[in-house]
Simulated assay, not measured.
Amino acid sequence: MDDMIEAPLFAIAAAAELAGMHPQTLRQYDRIGLVSPTRTAGKSRRYSMRDIVQLREVARLGAEGISLEGIRRILELENEVSSLRGRVRELESALADELLRRPGSRVFAAGTEGDVISLRAGARVRKQNAVVVWRPLER
């Protein structure tokens, strides 16, 4: 499904119509790095559905009064969050696969002093219920 969203399908005229913008606006956004479509061998821009969604987001944020630099930063952060979420899913999947391959293997946790504690799978670290009272030194 992600491949279809990322596929560069639309020429600039079609992308501009789908985004509700003028083609020149898309060229400007490409120049300043807001939305960077892929290029064909002949250097023509090709926009994906993801690009169209980003263009619509640029229009929405601009209508709210956010500057183009602010919009660029927001999109950059949203793309980073999306990428990190994908990486977390990959790591969770790899961890689940590893736990299935080696049942009964050990799991590690961090102790209160930063030390490594080895645990059996399914075991939990004992929580300390100590109360600590802090009193500043009197001068």
Results as ranks from 00 to 15, higher is better:
residue 138 E to Q: 13
residue 90 E to T: 11
residue 105 S to V: 02
residue 139 R to H: 14
residue 45 R to L: 05
residue 135 R to T: 14
residue 93 S to P: 00
residue 123 A to S: 14
residue 20 G to K: 09
residue 20 G to I: 02
residue 110 A to T: 14
residue 139 R to P: 12
residue 38 T to S: 14
residue 15 A to Y: 04
residue 17 E to C: 05
residue 7 A to F: 12
residue 78 E to T: 04
residue 102 R to C: 02
residue 25 T to K: 05
residue 134 W to I: 13
residue 28 Q to A: 06
residue 96 A to F: 00
residue 69 E to R: 13
residue 23 P to D: 00
residue 86 G to W: 01
residue 44 S to Y: 15
residue 95 L to S: 09
residue 5 I to Y: 10
residue 38 T to Q: 15
residue 39 R to V: 05
residue 63 A to Y: 09
residue 113 E to T: 15
residue 103 P to E: 08
residue 72 R to C: 04
residue 125 V to P: 00
residue 119 L to H: 12
residue 107 V to W: 07
residue 113 E to Q: 15
residue 105 S to N: 06
residue 5 I to Q: 11
residue 60 R to W: 07
residue 5 I to G: 04
residue 117 I to A: 06
residue 103 P to A: 05
residue 2 D to S: 08
residue 118 S to R: 12
residue 27 R to G: 04
residue 99 L to R: 15
residue 45 R to H: 09
residue 67 S to H: 05
residue 1 M to R: 02
residue 138 E to V: 12
residue 106 R to L: 07
residue 72 R to V: 03
residue 24 Q to Y: 03
residue 17 E to F: 06
residue 23 P to W: 01
residue 76 E to K: 01
residue 42 G to D: 13
residue 135 R to H: 12
residue 105 S to K: 11
residue 68 L to M: 12
residue 76 E to H: 07
residue 26 L to F: 03
residue 82 S to G: 14
residue 110 A to V: 14
residue 82 S to V: 08
residue 97 D to H: 05
residue 128 Q to F: 10
residue 9 L to Y: 08
residue 92 E to D: 15
residue 130 A to F: 13
residue 97 D to F: 02
residue 114 G to C: 13
residue 2 D to P: 03
residue 8 P to W: 02
residue 85 R to F: 02
residue 94 A to V: 10
residue 94 A to F: 09
residue 23 P to T: 03
residue 116 V to L: 15
residue 10 F to Q: 02
residue 126 R to G: 09
residue 87 R to S: 08
residue 114 G to H: 11
residue 18 L to Y: 07
residue 10 F to C: 01
residue 14 A to H: 06
residue 98 E to L: 09
residue 99 L to P: 00
residue 20 G to Y: 04
residue 24 Q to I: 02
residue 104 G to N: 05
residue 56 R to D: 00
residue 137 L to M: 11
residue 26 L to P: 08
residue 28 Q to I: 05
residue 46 R to A: 01
residue 49 M to G: 04
residue 59 A to P: 04
residue 66 I to T: 02
residue 32 I to T: 06
residue 134 W to V: 14
residue 127 K to Q: 14
residue 110 A to Y: 10
residue 16 A to G: 04
residue 123 A to L: 06
residue 87 R to D: 01
residue 71 I to L: 03
residue 71 I to N: 00
residue 93 S to N: 05
residue 42 G to Q: 08
residue 101 R to S: 08
residue 90 E to W: 01
residue 18 L to W: 03
residue 106 R to N: 06
